[in-house]
Structures are given as structure tokens and as C-alpha cells.
Amino acid sequence: MSTRDQVIAILADQAFLDPSDVSIDSTLEQLGIDSMGVVESIFVIEEAFNISVPFNANQPGAADFDITSVASIIAGVERLRAEQA
């Protein structure tokens, strides 16, 4: 499975959606993922890809990991996989 498909699958699972219903442009809020869900999603992503995601729930916008949309999360994971490989 590609990184993109894996991230979508993880977020779909958090949102109780079918992966085919997760649009790449969706925000996590649109998917119905709340702040606890964001923290849990990041944990699942870290475990799945064996990476460390810099994320502080107090500064969701400030970290160099952009959680604005599904697409930005995929981009962030791809970058971290390359950096932490």
C-alpha cells in the first residue's frame, strides 16, 4: 500500500468512514476527527511508519507538521519518512 493509501486508511478508521469516502482535500474537522482523534491518529501514523511526528496539541498550527488537510498530512509523512529513513 502506498503512503497515501495508508494514511487515508488510518484517518478513515479514526473517522469511522470507508477510505473511498475520504477526500484528499478534507480537513480533519470535516472528517469529524476531534482533538483527541488528531492525537490518536498521529500516534497510529507514528507506529505504522516508524517515524516520530513533531506535534504539540497546544500548537497544532505551529509545528512543522501540517495537519490542515489529509493531503498535508500525507505530504508531512512522506517528508518525515525520507528524513528519518
Binding site: V39, N56, A57, N58, Q59, A62
Partner: peptide, 20 residues
């Protein structure tokens, strides 16, 4: 740490740049 609410540098209550 798992909850992602701790600050790495300081506790700055009420300050706009507080980070946990």
C-alpha cells in the same frame, strides 16, 4: 508525553505563546 500537551521549554500560563 503521549497526550502531546507537555511543553518542551517552559510553563507560560496565559501567555499567547504558551505551549503546554
Amino acid at each position: 508525553e503521549g497526550l502531546r500537551v507537555l511543553s518542551r521549554d517552559a510553563c507560560r500560563p496565559f501567555s499567547a505563546n504558551r505551549n503546554g
